[in-house]
Nucleic acid binder design. Structure first.
Lengths: 152, 152
DNA sequence: ATTTAAAAGAGAGTTATTCTCAATAAGGCT
DNA sequence: AGCCTTATTGAGAATAACTCTCTTTTAAAT
């Protein structure tokens, strides 16, 4: 959580610290997430499509490997939005936000709350953990689904 | 979040409200979760095994259907613990807690924090949502994994 | 007791994600 | 500038969690 913005160089340095390499694929994928509108997130498939429309043919294997790697480095946040696949977004404290999700229709609202990150910091520090990300996820039923009589 | 303890009768009433039925399978599965030690959670497979050791042959299909149903009713919490499958636990405000997860070794620490539920209540109310559950999930690197030089 | 539709069971089907392995290339070293 | 080691990529097969389909069973209203 120390870094607030990533460049190809900072990514390279962080990778080299661990004996890893900066590849064109990694640089391109980081770039995609950096330039995404605030709060926008992508699934692996969506990322693959977006890369292709921009003329970058990066294999699905590499995409899955890269987003997982970057999530474990704290560069990306891995989101579980009540769907059957994960979403990823850039992890920047400035834009740190949380999700209120309708369990019936999956409609999602983002919200901010400053005390959440403080709780995350305090808790991880207390246990000696190195914080990467903390997310408050609220499962609820949206107004429209409350009105509907339909099942589930 | 209004209810703090479930009985076969209260489950029956809630099901009937929506034109559904109380089956022996649903009653047994609710019972399993009620009697689980505080903070203990189960995957669908683990629940299936536990049911079998207690002499209840409930099909995997029914188990998956039931835990999802109960999560959507707010009776169970659906947890994503950095593994490739979901875990479920009973949803009781008294024992409401959160998870600090090591993204490398998956070791998980539970912690309590009273303000989280307040934030969840406030946020969902503000948006007109009906709260079912809220969880603060912290992704971090545990002390042991910080010391190890091993990858990821 | 009869009726109706919800639910269970069994197993096939789906799909997100991971794994395998040969080919490629990053980056340290000389 | 070229060589060498090994991390990484790409392609497709494999895995596994979960859902779907369809028939049979059964809850519960009448």
């Amino acid at each position: 959580m120390s870094m607030s913005f990533y460049t190809a160089d900072s990514l390279k340095a962080e990778l080299h610290e661990r004996g890893w390499r900066l590849t064109p694929q990694r640089e391109i994928i980081l770039d995609i997430f950096q330039n995404l509108a605030a709060g926008k997130h992508l699934s692996a498939e969506e990322l693959c499509d977006l890369l292709q429309t921009e003329g970058h043919d990066i294999s699905l294997s590499t995409i899955y490997r890269t987003v997982k790697l970057m999530a474990r480095m704290g560069i990306l946040r891995e989101l579980e939005l009540a769907e059957d696949h994960k979403h990823y977004e850039i992890n920047q404290p400035h834009h740190h936000h949380h999700h209120l999700i309708c369990v019936r229709c999956n409609q999602t609202i983002e919200f901010k709350n400053d005390s959440v990150l403080k709780i995350g910091d305090k808790t991880s520090k207390k246990e000696g953990y190195h914080l990467l990300d903390c997310q408050l996820t609220i499962h609820a039923v949206c107004p429209a689904c409350q009105r509907s009589i339909l099942p589930v």
